[in-house]
Design a protein around this nucleic acid. Structure first.
Lengths: 203, 203, 203, 203
DNA sequence: CATGAATGAGGTTTCATTCAT
DNA sequence: GATGAATGAAACCTCATTCAT
């Protein structure tokens, strides 16, 4: 006797109107982060998230139409956090300094909560979630910085994508290996990034 | 009975002695690959794999002790394929040529069946599967090649890991974007790799 | 992490291949009938049906993709039963006798399991189920019989629909009131039907 | 807390003394009607009704003790509307004219908001609601009219019930088919009704 | 060995109802 | 009174796995 509403929605169901519900929403999102970190995708389910958040399953569904909406919210929260930090790069004098700052921000972001960052990177790639997560801003920022750091570089969009891939690839792998020496890691990432820029430009 | 999590064995239940069952096993593994490619982890389930393989679910369990064993078998199949190709690098005269060959092999491997490669990389990271997949051989190979290409490089293990991360990061991202120009991609990957080696070594 | 399959299917999921599953399917359908009779739509749910059928919920879903599919199967079962009986009317010599037989069949059908018949009539009207239940055959049969009983009647389709409505309306109401005197009921239904035909024809 | 089935009171919680709350009650009832019409029983839920009424769910429960109370109130509203119209039949000179008026009123009532009328007829049949809706007045009215139209008819109660069943059956079916020609429909209903009376009386 | 019917734990989701604010 | 956040029982449904045939 039921009708399927179809086409799954990933955005929050209702904007919390009272302040207590804002707290509920935030606690749910953080609980999602913790469950993801500790249990991986295997153990990531709405019951576990609600339990960890200390709210009823009903409350969770009050604000999120399903599992994926939690992931999306989490991605957005982390992206915003990162974007805010990364934006500081724009205030740097030189392009090189800006790019270095950006790399530092990336490393910090990925290694702050390494498991979480890695799993969210994976989630971001899921076809179902494409489009739900606005990567445009981020790409634009990186492009701008690359443009300043390597002004004569022919394909800034490609370079931006490659740089992000290099950074995420290296840092995720480092996180997975349990590496904790931020400075050394950052040094190696810089090597790859600047090496890439200096060598691939003349193609 | 429902799913028992208990002690999971991941290796095939029986070494396929007769060629009949060898073929069955192979067809199941390939079916697993196809289901994974077309449905992602979401739609990857034992019944779907059995159906695609044209085999009963009972037979599947005859050869594989459980779902994860399918993934493990798939990872091993692809690793072996890659390792075989990559080993050719050892026959190259110069270290540089060897490394270039290795990069080429990586790009080929990741872009042959991009979705599959990407998903298997993800699966490899799952804690539950860590011990099951022997990465040792692979790492050793890369380490050897790096050692030949950059003899005075202080941390060949780290470098090997970083290089794989760079390559996989860049190529997976390219695959995700639908990039198809192997040569240009390979050129950029080389730039990153050689840039990394030439710059990070002196740290 | 899930994808909605959308557009709910109402037909059985798989044709039972072995004979034991045929028995399972039949027992599930009969259980559905009993639950519907005793609990009404309120208490009609897949768990209750599976329990009553003495099978696991999983088995139910092997054969029926959901609640509505059970209702549809039930409607089809009862329609077939009725159609078989009603078809006998075609063997009658006179149109009047045929129509009388049809009325008798209707009364028998509706009063055999009155609650069930009534609830299935209601279910049949649900927009979601239209089209899933082939009413065409039934309508054609009634039309044929009406055509024979009242040859000069101008709108046989309308008359057929009206007659079915009259019969179902009267018999459902009688069933609801707990009436059990088949003969008297049948007499009154005949009065309404033949009265209708003799009076509305000249319009 | 979740739904407590327990002892259900179906009458409005408070007699709306102030006209303010009278208006609220009326708007809730009409909202219930609209939700029922547009969503069917499937989509009929207290939150949806409150939303449509522009009232908080808390307020709804202020005036109605539960979901079923909404249905009951709606049935009462529609019954009263119908009863008022039907009562006019009593002012008619002849019994025939009275019965004809009654039929007209029925057709109007059922076809004014066909979906609503049909669904409420179904709801009225739910065992849980039986006692709550006073059908006595209505039956008495019809009985009186039948008694005047067919004075020598042996079982006026049965006839009254049959007539209502015929009318509702025919008109609901017509509504379901989307028929809109009131006059023709009324003519056919009269044929059935008067045919019934003239033929079944002598049994 | 192969088959596929059967199982049921466990995940997803809804919605009637309550109650703190 | 009015509000809407919170609750959780209960329904829905899937899929890994087993086992009779």
């Amino acid at each position: 006797m039921s009708q399927r509403p179809s086409h799954k929605p990933y955005r929050p169901r209702k904007a919390p109107a009272q302040s207590r519900s804002e707290a509920t929403v935030a606690s749910i999102v953080e609980a999602a982060a913790q469950v993801l970190e500790s249990e991986g995708f295997e153990g990531f389910n709405t019951n576990a998230v609600a339990r960890r958040a200390g709210v009823s399953i009903g409350s969770l569904y009050q604000y999120f139409p399903g599992k994926d909406a939690l992931i999306v919210a989490l991605i957005r929260r982390e992206s915003a956090r990162f974007y805010e930090d990364a934006s500081v790069a724009l205030t740097k004098r030189s392009g090189k300094a800006a790019l270095e700052y950006l790399i530092g921000a990336s490393v910090r972001q990925q290694l702050q909560r390494p498991m979480l960052a890695r799993l969210l990177d994976i989630a971001e790639g899921r076809p179902a979630l494409r489009g739900e997560v606005a990567k445009g801003e981020m790409d634009a920022l990186v492009e701008t910085i690359v443009g300043r750091a390597a002004p004569r570089y022919p394909n800034p969009e490609v370079a931006a994508a490659d740089l992000l891939a290099i950074v995420k690839g290296m840092v995720d792998a480092a996180g997975e290996r349990g590496e904790r020496d931020l400075d050394d890691l950052e040094r190696r990432v810089r090597a790859a990034v600047f090496g890439y820029l200096s060598r691939s430009g003349g193609a």
